[in-house]
Design a protein around this nucleic acid. Structure first.
Length: 419
RNA sequence: GUGGGUAUAGCUCAGCUGGUUAGAGCGCCUGGUUGUGGUCCAGGAGGUCGCGGGUUCGAACCCCGUUACUCACCCCA
């Protein structure tokens, strides 16, 4: 039989490596909670129609990358391809009193070919705010995103910002864009020559040289914003300026999910070869209504944990060391002392580890050393006989003291305080 | 979905134009020190050379297929 392994595009997060995940989640949770967000957990799978309607059938994410399956009751389900739709669904279902602020940390699934920073199951942290149309909340959300990345130690990333307009002005803009593209149809890349009517905005994001040169002369959304959208966008920019959050206005920024309106953003990082998007989001004022709720504005972002950590690796920041024991118990009698001592020390709040299997003193010390523990606590025949414990400092030259069992804790704290 | 690269020990890799018992470093285990790790020395365990087929007296090496990993395109976190 073929050895079993994790499915294509997935990976195991092993103890040791997971230490920085724990730390990352801590950073994000602390920031989110401080800003009034509460944790939300929604099912990993949902009625497939949620994503079809919410994210859009035309999008790649839903159209060709979604994990869909039929459950045993014959229901069409899908694994979550992104974070927002489920939160909005929960909001509609439970009628919390707005404003509603939730943060999440969740796996997301997309059936695509894996490559650097790209997985079939990846993980995102994110936030959503529902019920506030005020542009100031856009600034809050962007500031949170910025604080998060900064909090990890990242730098040199670019916040790309755009406004996609709303139901009042976007249709007109799309019409004029379509008109322009149709006039230049012959100059577009092969793929987009026939795709104009489906989603003309996407062509602005095409990396093909031919499409790009056509895009240069295309009408931009920012020129076409209605008065309210323009005011909203101006207020967002003013807020970012006031908080010294730098951004880059990217009129070509179009996101791959259909629900976005007005403020839209992405954070990218140049890794030498190509840019990596580590965070993305925006406003989605029409989404609640599309999903059957009473019209409610919303905004949020998601950020890929694997990509963010990849970026941290490249920048040599956020190198979290796994937790290391304070003491490691070496017991060459029969292990009963180790068994009882490790339990009582843990109750006292110390991180304590021990050797198992009654191995030689030498090999127990090897595992003690490997554990990274600060002190070894030795219980051999002598200590067992006279009720003492030998404390050996594993960091320095190996200084040892023999202490009475009752004095162990105070002695340890004294020794630890020395340096 | 399309294209490139890779697949040999737990890890990182070597293996000359196909040649007989497949190697190194690190890691692991044991001993040198029957009460002491991190250094040093000695020994040991561990591989059906991704899988299937073919060519050949003989294949880790050549050919075909296949799977996986990886990178890029597309798209995205």
């Amino acid at each position: 039989m073929e050895p079993l392994r994790a499915p294509t595009g997935t990976h195991d997060l092993m103890p040791g490596d997971s230490a920085r995940w724990v730390a990352l989640l801590g950073v994000f949770a602390a920031l989110a909670e401080k800003s009034g967000f509460g944790l939300i957990h929604t099912p990993l799978f949902e009625d497939v129609r949620l994503f079809r309607r919410g994210v859009g059938t035309e999008t790649e994410v839903v159209g060709k990358e979604m994990y869909e399956f039929t459950d045993r009751g014959g229901r069409a389900m899908a694994l979550r391809p992104e974070g927002t739709a489920s939160v909005v669904r929960a909001f509609i279902q439970h009628h919390p009193i707005p404003p509603f602020r939730a943060w999440y940390a969740t796996p997301t699934f997309r059936y695509e070919r894996p490559q650097a920073g790209r997985y079939r199951q990846h993980h995102q942290v994110g936030v959503e705010v529902l019920g506030i149309a005020d542009a100031d909340v856009d600034v809050e959300v962007l500031a949170l995103a910025n604080d998060y990345l900064q909090g990890l130690g990242l730098s040199g990333y670019t916040l790309r910002l755009n406004s996609l307009g709303d139901a009042a002005c976007r249709p007109q803009y799309v019409a004029s864009l379509r008109e322009y593209l149709t006039a230049n149809q012959g100059s577009l890349c092969e793929e987009h020559k026939g795709k104009i009517s489906a989603n003309p905005l996407r062509i602005l994001d095409c990396k093909d040289e031919r499409c790009r040169s056509v895009s240069v002369g295309a009408p931009t959304m920012s020129e076409a914003l209605c008065e309210q959208c323009a005011e909203h966008f101006a207020r967002v920019k003013a807020g970012l300026d006031a908080q010294n959050i730098s951004y880059f206005l990217d009129a070509k920024l179009v996101r791959g999910l259909d629900y976005y309106t007005r403020t839209t953003f992405e954070v990218t990082l140049d890794l030498g070869e190509g840019e990596l998007t580590i965070l993305g989001g925006g406003r989605y004022d029409g989404l609640v209504e599309v999903l059957g709720g009473v019209p409610t504005p919303g905004i949020g972002f998601g950020s890929g944990i694997e990509r963010v950590l990849l970026a941290c690796d490249r920048q040599d920041v956020f190198a979290i060391q796994p937790t290391v024991p304070m003491v490691y118990i070496v017991d060459t009698t029969d292990g009963a002392h180790a068994r009882d001592l490790v339990a009582s020390l843990r109750k006292e709040g110390l991180i304590a580890e021990r050797a198992y299997g009654n191995r030689s003193m030498k090999s127990q010390f090897k595992t003690a050393d490997r554990s990274g523990a600060r002190f070894a606590l030795v219980i051999g025949d002598r200590e067992a006989a006279d009720g003492t414990i030998t404390i050996r400092d594993l960091r320095g030259g190996g200084e040892q003291v023999v202490v009475a069992r009752d004095a162990l804790l105070t002695s340890l704290l004294e020794l630890a305080a020395k340096n």
